[in-house]
Every structure is written in structure tokens, then in C-alpha cells.
């Protein structure tokens, strides 16, 4: 956002559209696959494979770090609210699992939810987070930001359907949607903050 790529509600909507179709789709696919795995009582090896397949689809360390930080936070809360064998199996493989894997384990574990539900949660979170950030960082009208999210309803529905339709595939064969601009922006963002810290230190 500091690059001025998003300055108003129209640009926010277009940014969210791209994010939903790229990173959001990837998150939805792996949330659905994790929910499927949870329902099928997957073993540690399967959770480990899901984890490394998300890594291979996330070339940006900044994005991997963000996904694991969010995953850990969600898992900690989820372990108290909705404990399940699936979540324990996932956390036995990694104490900082990727966010989509946690969403899937939580949805398909204690709640016995469907891959479709897990996909919908992940897809929605991929755009609701940036939308609320736009309100806080750019001072956008919250109603306009929410309208931008709501306008993507049909796209969200399509992504969710798609993710649910591939949930049962072998982890290696799951879709691997890339997002080059998001990856570059995430790295630039990290660089920007590091440089800022240096500026204060000098």
C-alpha cells in the first residue's frame, strides 16, 4: 500500500480480486485438502507432505513466515476451543503449521466440517484481512471496503467450489497457483520495514 498501488475503494476491489484468485485460491485449496485429510484420519506423513507442498508453492519467505505465524496463532486458539485428533496430528508435525492447514484441521476435525466449508473460510480470510488493513492504513471508508469484499461474493463462491472439487487429490497433485506480484510486494514490504528500522537505529 505504501507504493500507492491501492489508494481508493476501486483499486482495493481489483487488488482483492487478484489476491482471491491467486493466494486466496491456493489457501482455499489447501484448507479443503486439510479438511479432507482430517476427515480421513490422515497420519503424520500426510500432514508433513501437505506442509512441504505448501512450502513448495510459496517461494516468498515473507509469505511463508506470515502463513506460519497466522497458523500458529489460530492453532493455539483452536486447540482450546475445538481440540481434535487432527489438530494434534498436524501440530505434532510442525509447531508452526501453515494457516490453511490449520483452518482445514480445525474445520474437518472437531467440527466434522466439509472441505467446502474450510475452503470458504480460507478464501474469505484472504480478502477480509487486506480489506480491514486498507481501512486502518489508508483510512478508507469501512463501508466501501466491506462493499469491495461483498462484490467478490460470486468469485469467492467459484474458488470455494473449485477448491472442494480437488480436495481429495494427492498433495503433490494439488493446484499450485502462483502470485508473482504479491510475492514481490511481500518482499518489498519486508525490505521497507528492515530499512526503516535501520534508519531509526542510525
Amino acid at each position: 500500500m505504501h507504493r500507492g498501488l491501492v489508494t481508493g475503494p476501486g483499486e482495493l476491489r481489483e487488488f482483492l480480486f487478484g489476491r482471491l484468485r491467486s493466494a486466496g485460491c491456493l489457501a482455499a485449496v489447501f484448507a479443503a485438502a486439510a479438511a479432507h485429510a482430517a476427515g480421513a484420519g490422515a497420519d503424520g506423513r500426510h500432514w508433513r507432505r501437505l506442509d512441504s507442498e505448501i512450502d513448495a508453492r510459496t517461494p516468498s519467505p515473507a509469505q511463508r513466515e506470515a502463513s506460519r505465524a497466522q497458523g500458529r496463532g489460530t492453532a493455539r486458539a483452536g486447540r482450546v476451543a475445538w481440540p481434535s485428533a487432527a489438530l494434534d496430528a498436524l501440530l505434532a508435525v510442525s509447531t508452526r503449521p501453515h494457516h490453511p492447514a490449520v483452518i482445514g484441521a480445525l474445520t474437518g476435525g472437531a467440527r466434522a466440517g466439509t472441505p467446502r466449508e474450510a475452503a470458504a473460510v480460507a478464501a474469505y480470510l484472504s480478502i477480509s484481512g487486506p480489506a480491514s488493513a486498507a481501512v486502518r492504513l489508508l483510512g478508507l471508508d469501512p463501508f466501501a471496503a466491506n462493499a469491495a469484499v461483498a462484490a467478490l461474493g460470486p468469485d469467492l463462491e467459484r474458488i470455494t467450489e473449485y477448491a472442494a472439487s480437488v480436495a481429495g487429490r494427492d498433495p503433490a497433485a494439488l493446484p499450485a497457483v502462483g502470485a508473482p506480484a504479491l510475492d514481490l510486494l511481500a518482499q518489498a514490504h519486508q525490505r521497507h520495514h528492515r530499512d526503516e528500522v535501520r534508519l531509526f537505529a542510525s
Binding site: 480480486f17 487478484g18 489476491r19 482471491l20 493466494a23 508473482p180
Partner: peptide
């Protein structure tokens, strides 16, 4: 083209 134009994909 809408996707390619988005800063969330190819900017």
C-alpha cells in the same frame, strides 16, 4: 486481463 492488471497477481 482483469486478473493480470491486479496488484494481487501481475500488477
Amino acid at each position: 486481463s482483469r486478473l493480470e492488471a491486479s496488484a494481487g497477481y501481475l500488477a
